[in-house]
Design a protein around this nucleic acid. Sequence first.
DNA 1: ATGTCTATATCGTATAGA
Length: 263
Amino acid sequence: MPRHLKIATFNVNGIRSRLPHLLAWLKKEMPDVACLQELKATDQAFPIDEIHAAGYGALWRGQTSWNGVAVLGRGVDPVESRRRLPGERADEQARYLEVMAHGVLVCGLYLPNGNPQPGPKFDYKLRWFDRLLKHARALAKLEHPVILAGDFNVVPTDFDIYDPKSWRKDALLQPESRERYERLLAQGWTDSLRAMHPEERIYTFWDYFRNHWPRDAGLRIDHLLLNPALAPRLVDAGVDRWVRGLEKASDHAPVWVKLRRPP
DNA sequence: ATGTCTATATCGTATAGA
């Protein structure tokens, strides 16, 4: 049994086209829990056999073409807590999956991108964020350890992007998006990457345009937030940049935290 | 304004979303 519990999030940008990368990453980094986003596959197309063969159990919520989230558990089948945010009855987009695994309530999420902004997609992003805020407020207060993990599609501050100039009008940097992320933190959530590395430029996403990866022109939009019951166990956090450097990589790199195991 | 991927609808190439 490794000393620490490792929980990660990875926007795979198509699980079928990215399966070799996902399997290589699981084998090398061995996260105990992995939240995946942008499966871009139906439930039937989810590659559960390969994931089982890699030593992981999984729950997933797919959708044709877009979105889709999953949570993998190393050596265990995650136990489903909920498959959608409260107040989502009419929302069919597969963006939220909450499970229990390795003693932690893991909330895997894929917040809407929201571009172009302004417009209906940005309105949807803010509504989705408001639903998350409402649900997260209750989760923060639990005495049980909880983690919010996923692609939040929010660059929290100008320190979390290589250069905000060409992104000022983008939905990821809007004051309305950032203010909601701030409110989330004000509920008591710890931004693990920033807490561990307050002075460091950290990126988790480099788009495919304009040579951004070779120039290390990235954004920090994939986040791992710990509730007060879990935050004292935080020992390390980082980004598996090597995955972004692979041939035909996702535009995101996996992000992880290491947590002390409870006594 | 641009740039590049993935998936879908359909079998070469266009469109949407990010």
